[in-house]
Amino acid sequence: MLYYSVVFFIIAVVAAVLGFGGIAAGAASIAKVLFIIFVVLFIGSLLFGALTRR
């Protein structure tokens, strides 16, 4: 999921450089949502792993 977040971020940067503002904003928002989902799942797995080791 982090891979897709980075891909959409790169697409947003390239689109912004080329002047496609709408596409850049859409790709950036998708990248932001995917990154937030990744962070939540990562923290959840860390907590779950720490709780099951006890």
Score class of each variant (00 low, 15 high):
L2I: 10
L2S: 12
L2Q: 08
Y3A: 13
Y4R: 10
Y4N: 11
Y4H: 10
Y4D: 11
S5W: 01
S5I: 03
V6R: 15
V7S: 13
V7C: 12
F8H: 06
F8Q: 04
F9Y: 05
I10G: 03
I10V: 14
I10S: 09
I10Y: 07
I11D: 08
I11Y: 06
A12R: 03
A12K: 05
V13Q: 12
V13T: 12
V13K: 08
V13I: 13
V14K: 07
V14F: 09
A15L: 12
A16W: 11
V17R: 06
V17S: 07
L18P: 00
L18S: 02
L18V: 01
L18R: 00
L18M: 03
L18N: 00
L18W: 00
G19V: 04
G19Q: 05
F20P: 00
G21W: 15
G22W: 15
G22N: 14
G22P: 07
G22Y: 14
G22S: 13
G22V: 14
I23H: 03
I23C: 03
I23P: 00
I23D: 04
A24W: 01
A24E: 03
A24L: 01
A25N: 08
A25F: 07
A25S: 11
G26I: 01
G26A: 01
A27Q: 01
A27C: 03
A27Y: 00
A28W: 01
A28N: 06
A28G: 09
S29W: 07
S29C: 11
I30H: 00
I30M: 04
I30N: 00
I30A: 06
A31I: 01
A31N: 01
A31Y: 00
A31M: 05
A31C: 04
K32Q: 12
V33F: 08
V33D: 13
V33G: 11
V33C: 11
L34G: 08
L34A: 09
F35W: 09
F35L: 14
I36D: 10
I36K: 04
I36H: 06
I36A: 10
I37P: 03
I37N: 09
I37H: 10
F38R: 02
V39T: 09
V39W: 06
V40W: 02
V40C: 02
V40M: 02
V40G: 00
V40K: 03
L41F: 15
L41I: 14
L41M: 15
F42P: 00
F42E: 06
I43K: 02
I43G: 02
I43L: 13
I43E: 05
S45P: 05
S45K: 15
S45N: 15
S45D: 15
L46E: 12
L47A: 14
F48S: 08
G49H: 03
A50K: 14
A50I: 13
L51F: 08
T52S: 14
T52A: 13
T52L: 13
T52E: 10
R53V: 11
R53A: 11
R54W: 09
R54K: 15
